[in-house]
Design a protein around this nucleic acid. Sequence first.
DNA 1: TAGCCAAAATTATAGACAGCATGTC
DNA 2: CTATAATTTTGGCTA
Length: 716
Amino acid sequence: MLDIEDLTSWLPREVVELYQKEGIRELYPPQAEAVERGLLEGKNLLISVPTAAGKTMLAELAMLKAALNGGRSLYIVPLRALASEKQAAFSRFSDLGIKVGLSSGDMERRDEYLGRNHIIVATSEKADSLIRNGAQWIRDLSVLVVDEIHLLDSTNRGPTLEMTITKLLRINPNMQVLGLSATVANAREVASWLSSDLVESRWRPVELKEGVICNGELHFPGETVSIPSRRDDLVDLVEDTMNQGGQILIFESSRRNAEATAAKLARVVSKRTEKTRQGLDLGQNEGQRKKQGRVQESLLSEKVLATGESETGKKLAECVKSGVAFHHAGLLSEQRAIVERGFRSGEIRAIASTPTLAAGLNLPARRVLIKSYKRYEGARGMVAIPVMEYRQMAGRAGRPGLDPRGESFLMAKNDAETRDLLDHYVHGEPEEIFSKLAMEPALRTHLLSTMATGFAKDAEELKRFVDSTFYAHQQDAWHLDATIETVLDFLIESQMIEPDLRPTPLGALVSRLYIDPLTARIVVDNLRSKETTKITDLTLLHLITMTPDMDTLYVQASDGWVEEFIDQHYGEFCNEDNYDWMMREAKTAALLLEWIGEAEEEKIADRFRVGPGDIRRVAETAEWLMHSAGRLSEHLELGATFRIYQLEKRIHFGAGPDLLSLLDLKGVGRVRARKLHRAGYRSLDDLKGADVAEIAEVVGPRIAEKLMAQLRSGAG
DNA sequence: TAGCCAAAATTATAGACAGCATGTC
DNA sequence: CTATAATTTTGGCTA
């Protein structure tokens, strides 16, 4: 055991005191090991320990040490939400004079300004983008922290993480690297790639009991316990948890199941609210608890309703009234935040969730129930999840300092399945992780950026660069080499790099826009081939839905109208050979068309059978791609530039073409712009000539005043 | 022939990063 | 192309 006092050998007393004030007296064993291995002496470390075993604090110590010596640290996370969480946490060091910056796609300060911070938190894509756009400060890092580094294994986003790390290592040869990882079978391999020592441990601050629940019995390794009353395993376990004053997270494999389970629990639980609420572990006396419980409960469901009148929102509000919720990506981020806050405060006692909550925020519960350990994977049907993901979910059980221990259960139907699950998950070892860099889409993007950013000038340098990746470190390179050939040919043919591999201006632009080169190719080819006069809004919307950067909507059997839609607008669509894709693209484009036609979100959600969160996500992606298409059109003078930028703006606001000029005003979005338009104010000039009182009739006095001020200063 | 129940057929299926330049109701 | 669970439709049977 290492006392926190002992850290004064490396760090100033004020740092140590800060942690003491937070109640920390000694380091956890894995933390002590990291310090002994040279964490505070600049050593590279890969720390592979369970959730909540104090990884973040280790990163903090290393970053603080660097900051107090005038150094700069970059902390890479996989999710935007995690980035803001970390930034908020690190901001408590401001008393020590330490500045923290945040950089992610939706939260941006000027790149160079960012460099004035001691600690910068960024998503891996944003870090990559900062390198591509030539931020200077990123060439002077003392410490690099990579959170959840096991995501190197992810098909989607692993390659970006891998390339970003590789590039950062290249430009900062003396930087200390800290990899934070879940437990994986081949942590040593990752450690060796990073030239780092490995700190590996199974230690947890709260004991975790893992088991399987089946027909009223809890099977732990070597022990079986019955739970009271035998009707329905799910309901029994939830009630038992609540009777103990605990909270429970339930993992489901689909949104529908998550919603159905939450609704079911809400029905059962509401019958016995009073009794359960008394058990809640909120650290208040009983009277306070009852009162607050009621008041906040209704506040919470009202808050949900205030986020929108969608079907999803109503369902959620109904559940929340009973202290239950569901959680998935179809929710608005505001709705998710309410659910998360409600759970943390204890007002929500059970959440039925898709895997959103497994990887995301720190939201522990006393118990975890993994109702479904299988997941639908397109062509492969239902597939059992990897042990690593099971651990990720199970590890959510047990709140340090609040629960005596955590318990996590897989749900089984019979004895045979129970044995299998105990064997495979509870006793099983996590899998190895493998670099996914050799996938063609990943290489398309990253080879271009490697050339465009000057990490390699010719084939030989490229080879050397690729040799320093985790892929080359781990696997035989022949497959990689073959794919590289294919991809380079594509990039040359698309005129993004010269035959000698030097980037063209087009290639440089594509790299900075952070789009897949194939996206750029599709946009350029289609804009070139389509006669300008025949291009409609729908043409442009369809164009961006065709690109690999757009996640198209799923077409269901009940979406028969899509075929009609395609027939009706046949001439407006771009060429698409694959009819299945065409349906998905057309459906997605149709959603966007309704969005810019000012349809209410509720109607869109209903017609397309998506959640409100999906609408925003599609619109957000479309806006980014439309912007990129505009830049491409501008660069190559393809003739549609102005119309594309107008469309980008309409996608941003979800507004019709006649509102474009009104939207330039601050404080005016799709709703107020439409109100003004209906009242006869169709342009800024109309407004300038008007009386404040008249405008106040339409949008209220406060806004009207604000608008007039803008108009006076804007047009003189 | 309405009404009920069980068997068969049908249906649907997780998540979320990036550009740019600042503020919807 | 590989699965599963929830939902809907169909079909068999009874009264």
